[in-house]
């Protein structure tokens, strides 16, 4: 496979997952697109052999770094580690929530959004992108056991919330 084909196939394959990942970090479509474009441009400078069989973690890692760069530049106050929607987490159950008790999956987005950002991120990488613990670790530069811990904690919180309803 020549290089252009290699790049084209990776763009085709990962464009959407990367966009949604970047968007989840940035919450701004333009920025997310920029981050993804930069990621692929950087891919153009890589040797296919070098990335063989680890294209996905590489792409997500670069995309993440680019996203954080953009975030720092555009939004210097906010840091990655703090939960973004802390205020929401303390809310009472809304009428909507109570009404929707029969349909737990409808509440999932709400619960997910209440999780700390780092937990949300690994959950997304795991369940949307289907990366392994190791790949997530590579992408987020956390240790594998830390990834395991974040995922476990996040999932546990979600489970408890679902049960408490």
């Amino acid at each position: 496979m020549d290089k252009e084909t290699w790049i084209t196939s990776l763009v085709r394959r990962y464009e959407r997952p990367l966009c949604s990942y970047a968007f989840s970090l940035l919450r701004n479509l333009e920025w997310a697109r920029d981050a993804v474009q930069d990621t692929f441009l950087r891919l153009c400078g890589q040797k296919p052999e070098k990335l063989k069989d680890r294209e996905a973690p590489w792409l997500f890692r670069v995309c993440r770094n680019r996203s954080l760069d953009i975030l720092r530049k555009e939004n210097p106050v906010q840091s990655m580690s703090e939960p973004q929607e802390a205020s929401i987490a303390s809310e009472e159950k809304s009428p909507d929530e109570q009404a929707a008790q029969g349909d737990l999956s409808r509440l999932l987005p709400r619960f997910l959004s209440k999780l700390p950002k780092n937990q949300r991120e690994v959950i997304r990488l795991k369940f949307q992108q289907n990366l392994s613990y190791r790949e997530i670790a590579h992408c987020t530069q956390l240790s594998e056991s830390n990834v395991g811990f974040l995922l476990h904690t996040g999932i546990k919180t979600l489970r408890e919330q679902m049960i408490n309803l």
Binding site: E4, T8, C19, A32, R33, V36, L41, C44
Partner: peptide
């Protein structure tokens, strides 16, 4: 689902081609 714009695709394609 979100995707890149057509211009962005074009930019990537050009970069890919240049590297070929």
């Amino acid at each position: 689902q979100m995707v890149l714009t057509e211009e962005q695709h074009e930019t990537i394609r050009q970069a890919a081609r240049k590297n070929r």
